[in-house]
């Protein structure tokens, strides 16, 4: 196992996925590849042209989620090498595409709604359905940490 892909969206479920991936990567000597997908919601697009800054904001948000997740991996498993990637588009599609080039993909089961909503309710099913590599779905329930 060389590359462990993780979907990152800042939700508690995704945090659990990052932790699982860090441990798994340490056990296998694998690289953790963090992927944060972002897209401008249709509700925003429907207003017509979208200012360039808005796109930049969304991408910057994804970058900052990746930075936080990478820090968490290093905190848990300092020896594990981390890659950070952003993708513009639907999180489920971006993750499924990225599985072609991974040995394992780890996702959390619950998202938190909002900016990257969807990641991990319906998305966990989408990835489990269409992944090219084994998928780990890490559950997270409020109050059951």
């Amino acid at each position: 196992m060389k590359t462990i892909l993780v979907g990152v969206d800042g939700s508690p479920g995704a945090d659990k996925a990052v932790e699982f991936a860090a441990r798994e990567a340490a056990a296998h000597g694998a690289v953790v590849r963090l992927l944060a997908a972002w897209e401008v919601p249709a509700s925003v697009l429907s207003g017509g042209g979208v200012p360039l800054e808005l796109y930049k904001n969304f991408e910057a948000e994804a970058q900052s989620l990746l930075t936080a997740a990478a820090a968490r991996v290093r905190e848990l498993e300092p020896s594990v090498q981390v890659e950070q990637r952003t993708a513009e588009g639907h999180a489920g599609n971006a993750l499924v595409d990225a599985t072609a080039d991974a040995d394992l993909v780890v996702i959390g089961r619950r998202g938190h709604g909002g900016f990257t909503e969807l990641l991990l309710g319906s998305i966990s099913h989408q990835v489990a359905d269409h992944s090219k590599c084994p998928v780990v779905i890490v559950p997270w329930e409020k109050g059951r940490d």
Binding site: D103, L104, A128, C133, P134, V135, V136, I137, P139
Partner: peptide
């Protein structure tokens, strides 16, 4: 996937020769 309280691994069954990339 929906009901497990522990991490679940779902293994895809792909065509012959591509089931285990690793």
């Amino acid at each position: 996937v929906s009901h497990a309280e522990r991490p679940v691994v779902v293994i895809p069954l792909l065509g012959r020769g591509q089931s285990s990339r690793s």
